[in-house]
Design a protein around this nucleic acid. Sequence first.
DNA 1: CCATTAGTGAACGGATACGTTCAACTGAAC
DNA 2: GTTCAGTTGAACGTATCCGTTCACTAATGG
Lengths: 211, 211
Amino acid sequence: MSSDETKAKGRPTDPAKRDAIIAAATRAFFKEGFAGASIEQIAADAGVSKVTVYSHFGDKSGLFTASVESQCEQMRGHFSIDAFASGSLRERLMAIGEAMVAFLSREEMVQFERRIAAETEREPEVGAAFLAAGPHRMKRVFAAFIDAMSQAGELKVADPELAAEQFVSMCKGMGDLERRFGHPSDPVRNRERIEGAVDVFCNAYAVKGCS
Amino acid sequence: MSSDETKAKGRPTDPAKRDAIIAAATRAFFKEGFAGASIEQIAADAGVSKVTVYSHFGDKSGLFTASVESQCEQMRGHFSIDAFASGSLRERLMAIGEAMVAFLSREEMVQFERRIAAETEREPEVGAAFLAAGPHRMKRVFAAFIDAMSQAGELKVADPELAAEQFVSMCKGMGDLERRFGHPSDPVRNRERIEGAVDVFCNAYAVKGCS
DNA sequence: CCATTAGTGAACGGATACGTTCAACTGAAC
DNA sequence: GTTCAGTTGAACGTATCCGTTCACTAATGG
């Protein structure tokens, strides 16, 4: 049976509508929160009848879940570490640090994290899903990267996951927290944080310094 | 003029009621969010008339602001660093790291941060107030501590605030983020994070190792 | 053309919430 | 005891929202 040929008898569902609803819902939920967002408004923004929203997603929670899943999916492919495999150790670490901070600093990302954290209280599985799709996945990738460098003799790292956490945490520093609470980003300070992280990291783990 | 003698003509306002309202409001706001919390429910929980709430705080936003301010105030005195001025460098850093992580791990604190972050979008000044009352204040204190150790010749630190951020960030590592998204705390890993932070920090900044 | 499914618009029920108003009551100061 | 401000309970107006129902239209396969 050719699986892509699902005999639809009647009028087929319009994926564009589904997408429009999710887009509008995402905007609304991340701006107003779960309680604050209104399905009526979401339907209007998506140019769709309220009944269509319900027939697609069941209820408000279903819509929220779908919205989060969609964001996680978008997030998944958005950051890759493979592009940073060339140059000196210092250069590679700087590139990774900068890419990571840039990735996390985008306003959409900040909003997303704020909202998921807030709604974690209502629906813990949402928080767990986000952790798995985002941070935990990223940590494993970066830890593997560090482990590879360690086996190549560039670094001497006993606990790659811990080292990964340390590097990323130092790169973020307080900037992460500040952004979350509305403080404007300071590019200069961010740069200093990344440089400082590379310095300290190399001091602790590089087999022979890094410039 | 004796300032503590403000001639009140009629019936004086009952501070106990005010406190009860703020306590109930804090619980509600941090559990349900601004939009989700109901003034009617808050009044009932506080054992007070709804009108009394309005006469004290004007409207919902006013109540929310008062609630945040009260929490920040409570937070202010809650963490002091002076208790950690004895023992070896390693011992002192370990003690500080552990106290800080314990302070930030409390469920109330996690909830508070989640909520303030979420409401920062609606009212940016709330986020700014929290940053000033909490993290920024704490950073300055700890940076001064590091600076003192630096001038005492124990550490060699060019940028105390950056070093403070690095140490705290490493101590928190990913635990902070995980807690925010509902992942249960792992005391063993937390301990490893703090030990790792002390190791790396000393490697980078201690004049003569630590331990 | 006809059955079937997707989508629309409008209205409804039930609930909840914010913020206000009003008459009555309470308690401290003078 | 009088005065005056705090407090109460209850009700009200207005608004919003969730989720459902219903009659009706649009698109697709047979």
